[in-house]
Write a protein that binds this DNA or RNA. Structure first.
Lengths: 216, 216
DNA sequence: TCAGCGTCAGTAATGAACTAA
DNA sequence: ATTAGTTCATTACTGACGCTG
C-alpha cells in the first residue's frame, strides 16, 4: 500500500527564506569555443517556477578552468581544498563539491568509452591472430599427415629386411585421429573468417556504437 | 507575474515532507538491492536555491511507469505522443520531452556498459582459444619435427639399397625452417599465457574498471 | 547507536550548438 | 532566417552507503 503520494509533485514554495547571496556571480556570457553563430533564443519560462530568479547556470570560463585544473591534479576533494576553491571562485562550497562529483561521473563515462575502444582494437587484433593461427595449424596438420604417409611408405618399402618397428618415436605416431578434423587442404583456409564479423562497429570512430536503434 | 503554470500540478502541498519521510516511494526502477535500514536526515536544500520556486523533483511511480513503458516501445517521441503523454500524466510536455532526452542518454550509457561487458567476455574467450591454438600449434610442430626425423632415420637406414629420394611427397618436406621457431619442446607450453593478463578486470562483476585511481 | 561528512548512482532541468523543414 | 526538435554537456539535487568519532 503506497503512501498516498499518487499525485505528488512535492511543492517547494515557502522556501525562499534562505540565502540569496549570489546575485550575479553566474551568467557570464561566455562565447567560449565559438563566437559568431546566432544566439539561439530559447523558450524560456516554462510554466513552473514563475518567479524564478537566480537559477543555476553556467560557471564562468575561468571558474571552470580553475576547477578543471584542480581536478586534474586530484580527483578527490578534501574539504579544505573545497573551501579554498570556493572562496577563490566566489562559489558556494556546495557548488564546488557538486562540480567535482559531476566531474568524476563524467570522467568515468569518458574512461569507459576509452576502455571500450581500446579493448575493441585489442580484440580485433586477437581475432586476426587467432585466424592466422588456425590456418597455420591446418597447414601443419596437413603437413603432418603427409609426413606420416611418407613414413608409411618408407616402412612398407623396407618391409622385407626388418618387419619389426623399433624406431624410438613410433610410439607417438598415431594418436592424432582425435584432433585431426582437417577440412579442405587449401592453404590459408579462412572459413573461420566469420569471426571477424562478430560485432562490426567503427571502432576508432566517433560512433562505434549504433546506440540508437534497438529498443530495450 | 509568473508565466502560466496553469495546467501543471505543482500546487501540491505539504508533500515535500512526505517525500522526505518516505524516500523509497519512488524509484522502483532500481530496486534497492539492499535493505535500507537507517533513515537519515540530510541537511536540506540550503542556500543558492533562494528564490528558486520550481523545486519539484521526482515524478511519481506511475508517471515513471508510463513513461518507461512508452520508452520501451519507442525511444523517439513525436510531438503527438508527447502531448498525449503529457496530459495523461499531468505533466508539462516539456517535462516529457526532457524525460525522454535524459532517458536516452542514460540508455546510451547503460548500453555502453553492456557492450563493454559483452565484448570483454568475448575477448576473454578468444584469448583463451588463441592460447589453446598456440600450444596446439607448438605441439604440432614438435610432432612434425619428430616425424621428419623419423623419415630421415628411415631414409638413412635404407641407404644401401636405394640412395635416391623418389617419394612423391618429398617436395614439400623441407620448407619449414621459416616458421619453425619452436621453443622448448614441453607439451602445452603456455609461455604465452601472459595474454590472459593483458587487462584483468572483474569482467562480469560490478567494478570491472578501476575507475577511480589514475588522475587524468 | 547515532550524527556528520564524503561519495555515488540516478534524476531533473537548463543552455548551447546543430539540423531540418 | 525562423522555428521546432535533438544531442551534448552541465548544473543541481535526492536518497543511499560507508566510514568515523
Amino acid at each position: 500500500m503506497r503512501i498516498t503520494m499518487d499525485n505528488d509533485q512535492q511543492l517547494e514554495d515557502h522556501m525562499a527564506l534562505i540565502s540569496e547571496l549570489y546575485p550575479g556571480v553566474y551568467t557570464q556570457i561566455v562565447p567560449p569555443v565559438k563566437e559568431s553563430k546566432p544566439r539561439r533564443r530559447r523558450k524560456k519560462n516554462k510554466g513552473e517556477g514563475g518567479a524564478v530568479g537566480p537559477r543555476k547556470r553556467k560557471l564562468s570560463e575561468e571558474q571552470v578552468n580553475l576547477l578543471e585544473q584542480n581536478f586534474g591534479s586530484e580527483h578527490k576533494l578534501e574539504s579544505e581544498r573545497k573551501d579554498r576553491l570556493a572562496s577563490e571562485l566566489g562559489l558556494d562550497p556546495r557548488q564546488v563539491a557538486v562540480w567535482f562529483q559531476n566531474r568524476r561521473a563524467r570522467w568515468k563515462n569518458k574512461k569507459l568509452e576509452e576502455e571500450y575502444a581500446k579493448l575493441k582494437s585489442m580484440h580485433d587484433g586477437t581475432v586476426i591472430e587467432k585466424c592466422r593461427l588456425e590456418s597455420e595449424l591446418l597447414n601443419m596438420k596437413d603437413r603432418l599427415i603427409e609426413s606420416e604417409k611418407e613414413i608409411q611408405r618408407l616402412l612398407e618399402r623396407a618391409d622385407g629386411p626388418a618387419a619389426s618397428s623399433n624406431s624410438p618415436s613410433s610410439s607417438m605416431s598415431m594418436s592424432m585421429d582425435a584432433n585431426m578434423d582437417r577440412r579442405f587442404p587449401g592453404e590459408f583456409a579462412y572459413e573461420d573468417a566469420f569471426y571477424m564479423q562478430e560485432n562490426v562497429y567503427n571502432v576508432y570512430g566517433l560512433d562505434w556504437m549504433n546506440l540508437f536503434d534497438s529498443r530495450q
